[in-house]
Design a protein around this nucleic acid. Structure first.
Length: 476
DNA sequence: ATGTCC
């Protein structure tokens, strides 16, 4: 993207003044280099979102933004139901409540380094991965509905993990307002055998070493020290969420036409928050979010089983679990007034600052853990939320490196087998059912996660706490 | 992201 089409506010913030049908300005948090690495379509999509009814403050893009369906990935937009606001299925994305959880293991790098190969095998053996894989349980009928309304709380009640895990999950592991009745039979059918599966694409489970600490006080609160071994799990709501997204996109396109909502792009299909369609989508999207939370909870338990095969002393405890594809009803203070807003974050991570009442006691003084997954073979980060009042993007941060190249182009440019050999030489052990998937996820197909995170910190979105270096990766 | 098109 050319910087000429934007107004520079600072080295880390760019603005698009409202013109035409824009109701609010656009704001992109990025360095000049990151702007230049962004697709030209990001600007168009930020502008399109700014045209939607009831949008509040501005249409935002995070430093890792890239082109997505309707909304940019890395987009943040909040809507007020009292002022004609809408909810958009494209503003959440197909992979509803895709997110990251980080687990402490109680192990040190020196413990794990000699056993990376058998650990990779144990994890790959236990954790179903790839397109169409099946998990350890079958769900249907009332049990499916209980999962959709209970989320990780349901999973813990079923024996997948501990009560203490729940305190360290966004919304305590259970998203309120979920409606199993708003999820189609087809969506439920697709999920029958998929609980506890990682999925494909950019989803993965990675064993990592804490390679650098930037903020000692916050790292201590999060229970992280240099050379600790942690686990990142990145996955979502699998077939169920995808089906919910697909179906409601269609429904919203129809209802927007009927209600005379003028859309700058048909991919921006949305529904009034007060409409039956809007309410049904919120209920179904929240049910899919619970599915994602339960899914990550079950996978955690499988990872624990794999770890104790090799390390009997391993104790996987949850640092935090936060989604980066969702729409949440949150209270935000604007111009001295508290307002309840529906905040869409699509490829953007909620980053509540210090003092937020939803945070567990031990994190409240330092802010919410913000979990940033890098690309395969590169670093990941633990950041902390700031709630800097000068940064009005509804306490949000980036979610990863962000693609710099399409899957198709990456597939043409690299060979999966060669990439695996190169990573192994650097001490990173990968297990994946798909060499094509590995090529599509080539580190070179992504932006530089270090640059994205440095920019997020410089822009005030979140602050760096710890850097994580990959050791073993189970890749979708 | 996704039973990579019902």
């Amino acid at each position: 993207m050319k910087t000429a089409a934007l107004t520079r506010v600072s080295d880390f913030e760019w603005r698009i003044e409202p013109t035409g049908k824009m109701r609010v300005p656009g704001v992109i948090y990025a360095t000049e280099a990151l702007i230049e690495a962004m697709d030209e379509k990001v600007r168009d999509q930020v502008v399109n979102v700014a045209c939607l009814p009831g949008i509040v403050s501005a249409s935002y893009a995070m430093p890792d933004a890239h082109w997505g369906y309707g909304f940019p990935i890395g987009g943040v937009a909040a809507f007020d139901a009292d002022r004609g606001g809408v909810v958009s299925a494209g503003g959440v994305g197909f992979d509803i409540s895709c997110g990251v959880r980080c687990l402490r293991t109680g192990l040190r790098h020196a413990d794990v380094e000699p056993f990376k190969e058998p650990l990779a095998d144990a994890l790959y053996h236990r954790i179903p991965v790839g397109v169409g894989s099946h998990g350890p349980i079958r769900l249907a009928g009332k049990r499916m509905d209980a999962m959709l309304t209970g989320g990780a709380r349901w999973a813990v009640e079923q024996g997948w993990g501990t009560r203490d895990d729940l305190r360290h999950i966004e919304a305590q592991g259970c998203i309120a307002g979920a409606r199993a009745d708003a999820v189609s039979d087809k969506a439920k059918q697709r999920q029958r055998e998929e609980m506890g599966t990682l999925g494909s694409g950019n989803h993965y489970l990675e064993v990592q070493e804490v390679s650098e600490i930037y903020d000692r006080e916050t790292a201590r609160a999060y229970g992280l020290d240099e050379h600790d071994v942690v686990v990142f799990i990145h996955c979502g709501s699998r077939g169920l969420g995808h089906q919910v997204g697909t179906e409601y996109l269609k429904t919203m396109a129809t209802s927007a036409r009927e209600h005379g909502i003028e859309l700058p792009d048909r991919e921006l299909a949305c529904a009034s928050l007060r409409s039956d369609t809007g309410q049904a989508y919120l209920g179904a999207m929240r049910a899919a979010s619970n599915c994602a939370l339960a899914n990550r909870q079950i996978i955690t338990h499988l990872a624990q089983q794999a770890f104790v095969e090799l390390f009997p002393e391993a104790d996987l405890t949850l640092l935090y679990d936060v989604s980066h594809n969702t729409c949440k009803l949150e209270e935000h203070r604007l111009d001295g007034v508290n307002r309840r807003l529906f905040v869409h974050r699509k490829g953007a991570t909620r980053a509540f600052g210090p003092g937020h009442p939803e945070l567990p006691d031990e994190y409240r003084a330092v802010g919410q853990p913000v979990l940033i997954g890098g690309s395969m073979g590169t670093a990941s980060y633990v950041l902390a939320g700031n709630a800097d009042p000068r940064v009005p993007s509804f306490t949000s941060a980036c979610h990863g490196a962000g693609r710099a190249m399409s899957r198709r182009q990456a597939h043409k440019s690299w060979q999966g087998g060669q990439l695996l050999r190169e990573l192994r030489e650097r001490g990173i052990i990968i297990r994946s059912p798909s060499l094509r998937g590995v090529a599509e996820e080539a580190p070179q197909a992504y932006k530089d996660v270090d640059a994205v995170v440095d920019c997020a910190e410089a822009a005030g979105l979140a602050r760096k706490v710890a850097k994580l270096k990959p050791l073993v990766c189970i890749k979708g």
